[in-house]
Write a protein that binds this DNA or RNA. Structure first.
Length: 516
RNA sequence: GCCAGAGUAGCUCAGCGGUAGAGCAGGGGACUCAUAAGCCCUUGGUCGGGGGUUCGAUUCCCUCCUCUGGCACCA
């Protein structure tokens, strides 16, 4: 099977990570781990976008060199991904020498092939804000507001990428490839944007204005525009990528194309317009276009999260307070992939307590405890199980199928519903079969055996399904069971005599802040 | 302004042509293996407003309102 190549957006190293950054990485990590669980080879790429004007400015303000400034923020991101157990295989930092070389090689090639051209732009330029102003910025009286400071009219040369000539191709591509974007309601939004596409893309910035970037190989007076730098990370950090030639070497060809996990804010125009057109210009065919998985945002009490509102949630503090497992679980369980959701610590605690502590964790604990108490933890395969045990197995297996189907469609929250269904079914089975009664009845020994086996099989499957979401906790559960992960495409049936481990609470309940 | 998403029980959401569902929260009960967890029963809704199509609409169509996002515009 082709390896699974998944990427996230690379985060801008201008400020500390927030809950939105964490969500995207956890989502991608969960998808990556699911593919690994299914036996597929995975390459998971994430990283940081370190160039640009804002970084340059923040560094100046902090009184340090951009490289030093960026290193500090980068470390915060890496520490967070370690804390949240993000299993990335590749780290894309755009100041990396290999990346810079790849960007430069691609620019040179596109220039040589006539995809880049130099042209003059004339317009109004704000010295203070260091940017060209458009009619948008002009006030009702025709002048530019005081916030722009001194505004001068100037003419500037820059390099442009021939974007517009690929417009019709992109429209046709979008129409012919519904899998390009998930969820599919985003397709209309993208199509709308592409139809309005006019003009080429300015891909250079004069060094006099911006020094912190990748220098143009054929013109050292310019550095590279952010997206022509950042987007390239998806290929420049992919093993085996060769920027020199259109014909890619086998290592890269085996891996590509990628699934790009991105937020809705950067779909248009960067990932939905610039990126496919850049790839096409570089020489990628229609069959080599990546797919986009566009996720929504976490709002805070119905409001957009923003620094100015002061409602930014720090994921590192959250993980310290509630544990990484609670954070990971909440971030994928309480949002429908593609939609927005409302963040609340109360819900985080609730989902953890209900699903993990009271649900799965307690089921694991009571199952092991009964097995140890009644049978010393030793179980034997059941030759001819009763009807209710057979039904339990069949329904569990059916839930495993639902889980796979939902995961394959990136609907992690619904896959988790299948997990929860298995847990609930087993908890109900404990009550209907009442092992504590069977244990007091010597004639019910065989029944007690099959009940305990059925429960262990259920917990075994549930623990396996939890592996992509909470790898640590799921492995700990499997360790208590003394079992390797269960197969997902066959019923989880105990086939040999087995000795279980000792029960130990895996998910201690989180205390709800007491109402005063 | 254009395009899209959302508006369903207190909360988070599912359903999308046959006169409303889940989880959580709330109420009651029986049990005891377990992290006072689990199990059973149960109270909650004129499905944003108004029209229309249909034997019948939460579900299809039109329109309006509110929220969200993108794009455009800003006289």
């Amino acid at each position: 099977m082709k390896p699974f190549f998944i990427t996230t957006a690379i985060d801008y190293t201008n400020g500390a990570p927030h809950i939105g950054h964490a969500y995207e990485k956890v989502l991608a990590d969960v998808l990556a781990r699911y593919q690994r669980l299914r036996g597929r080879e995975v390459f998971f790429l994430t990283g940081v976008d370190q160039h640009g004007q804002k970084v340059q400015q923040s560094a100046e303000k902090a009184g340090v060199a951009p490289a030093e400034f960026v290193a500090g923020i980068t470390e915060k991101f890496r520490a967070l991904w370690t804390k949240l157990d993000i299993s990335y295989d590749g780290w894309a930092a755009t100041t990396d020498a290999a990346h810079k070389a790849a960007v430069q090689t691609l620019l040179q090639r596109l220039f040589d092939e006539g995809q880049l051209y130099k042209a003059a732009q004339k317009g109004f330029y704000s010295v203070r804000q260091e940017q060209f102003l458009t009619e948008k910025e002009r006030g009702p009286d025709g002048t530019f507001g005081a916030e722009w400071g001194e505004v001068v009219e100037l003419e500037e040369e820059n390099y442009y990428f021939r974007l517009a000539e690929h417009r019709d191709w992109l429209l046709a591509y979008i129409d012919a490839h519904p899998g390009f974007i998930t969820p599919d309601f985003r397709r209309a939004e993208l199509r709308n944007a592409v139809e309005k596409l006019s003009g080429d893309l300015c891909v250079s910035r004069p060094k006099s204005r911006l020094a912190w970037g990748i220098e143009f190989p054929f013109d050292p007076e310019f550095v590279t525009y952010v997206w022509f730098d950042a987007l390239v990370n998806y290929i420049s950090f992919a093993p085996g990528f060769d920027p020199q030639s259109k014909a890619q070497n086998p290592e890269f060809a085996a891996l590509w194309p990628a699934l790009h996990v991105i937020g809705k804010d950067i779909m248009v125009p960067a990932h939905g317009v610039y990126w496919p057109i850049m790839l096409r210009a570089i020489g990628f065919s229609d069959e080599e276009m990546p797919a986009l998985l566009v996720h929504g945002w976490w709002n805070i009490s119905g409001e957009k999260m923003s620094k100015s509102v002061g409602n930014v949630v720090d994921p590192a503090a959250l993980a310290d307070q509630f544990g990484p497992a609670a954070v990971r679980y909440y971030l994928v369980a309480d949002i429908a992939t593609g939609q927005d959701a409302d963040f609340s610590p109360e819900r985080l605690i609730q989902r953890y307590n209900v699903d993990l502590a009271n649900g799965f964790g307690n089921l694991l604990n009571r199952t092991l405890n009964m097995a140890q108490r009644y049978r010393g933890g030793a179980l034997a395969p059941v030759a001819a199980p009763s009807e209710d045990v057979q039904t339990l197995r069949a329904e569990n297996f059916n839930d495993a199928a639902v889980y796979r189907e939902k995961f394959d469609a990136f609907k992690v929250h619904q896959a988790l519903e299948a997990f929860a269904a298995i847990v609930t079914r087993a908890n109900v089975f404990v009550d209907t079969s009442a092992p504590w009664k069977l244990a007091k009845d010597p004639t019910a020994a065989a029944r007690l055996d099959e009940v305990l086996v059925a429960l262990v099989e259920s917990v075994h499957l549930a623990a396996t399904l939890l592996l992509p979401i909470l790898p640590d906790k799921a492995h700990a559960a499997l360790a208590q069971l003394q079992l390797a992960p269960a197969p997902l495409d066959a019923p989880a049936v105990l086939t040999a005599s087995h000795q279980l481990g000792a029960p130990e609470p895996l998910f201690p309940r989180l205390e709800t802040p007491a109402a005063s």
